[in-house]
Design a protein around this nucleic acid. Sequence first.
DNA 1: AACCGCCTGGACTGGTGAGTCCAGTTTTCC
DNA 2: GGAAAACTGGACTCACCAGTCCAGGCGGTT
Lengths: 203, 203
Amino acid sequence: MPRTVGQIDQAKSQAILDAAAEVLGTGGLSAPMDEIARRAGVSKQTIYNHYGSKAELIRAIVDRRVEEIAAPLLAPGAQDHPQEALAGFGRVMLELVLRPLGRSMLKMTVQAADDMPDLARAFYEAGPKTSRRRLAEFLRAETLAGRLAVDDPDQAADFFAGMVIGVRQIAGLLGVEQAAEPEVIEQVAQEAARRFLRAYGVD
Amino acid sequence: MPRTVGQIDQAKSQAILDAAAEVLGTGGLSAPMDEIARRAGVSKQTIYNHYGSKAELIRAIVDRRVEEIAAPLLAPGAQDHPQEALAGFGRVMLELVLRPLGRSMLKMTVQAADDMPDLARAFYEAGPKTSRRRLAEFLRAETLAGRLAVDDPDQAADFFAGMVIGVRQIAGLLGVEQAAEPEVIEQVAQEAARRFLRAYGVD
DNA sequence: AACCGCCTGGACTGGTGAGTCCAGTTTTCC
DNA sequence: GGAAAACTGGACTCACCAGTCCAGGCGGTT
């Protein structure tokens, strides 16, 4: 049995968050608390002990995942050949968007945007905005190094991100799935990087 | 769809649709029927006389607008210089996405996707899918004419559409607005077209 | 004029779900 | 071992909302 800190059971906190993310992500934000409780193997009261309300539970889900979502975007090494670095960015973005986790996270946030605009904004800042910023920084650095000729790094970052995830994002939101085989991801990321380099190359 | 063609008031039908699109688009799909009735200057019973249920009302909204949404994409003349034709596509797409109508339509459909997957699919086919197809056809034609060198027109169309509307789409869904001045639209469309031509030019 | 059907407004039903309460049980801490 | 705190499960309250019902008003048709 797990160690507990206060008297509150941390393992249950995680189980609740996992169950809630799963249930709310697939069934929509209107999914009932009872189902979350059932899925988490926990009584409804316990959920309210840990998080005070449904809104705060949702907040907790997003807060927990938001940094872990943008984190992989630090990884791609900026010192390789630009083609590989760019493709790396693209691959990570695509995986983020196609993975059930990222998908349901976005869906939840969109659905919550009406009632909790602050949450939507926080998600936007931590997710899309941050990733664009990192990409823009990379483009700026590469331009300074003379390997690219990007005049407006922010716009160029938007362009590249849009190329890679554009369609799939909205297809995912609408529940119009197409499978996400790794080789497709790789092909799209590589091709987007290649075309982008042609569009913004120094030549 | 039961068209009880008695003395039913067509003007009221429109007023209801307009009010419903407004209310459901801004307040979310959970906005109450009473508010729609109030906004339309009509009794709730009348709404149920015209459309049988909330679900069918939503369906009617989407059905009415869906073709009128993709329609402008026919316009851009394919015979001009590719740069202008492409920029035209981009401009139309951007306006579609930024206009409150298109925005609320997308938001509604995303929110409804859980409960009415067929509606989401229909919207996807008529909207994003159709526009990509037309763009892809254009690219194919231009390639045949020797003015472009596009090997995979479908993917290229996705890329271009993503460049133009990518970020704004999700920003809009999250309610993180930035104003849409016409000159910004124009600049983005032109720049995207320019870069795309560099990426896919014949040279 | 008399009829018919759409309209209004407001009251009403039924279902669902958030959040609470409670009595009894388990777990942790000292 | 015993107290305190957390957990369970199930019943319960309360609010909200889709959809129905009804009594009366209004406009067109014959």
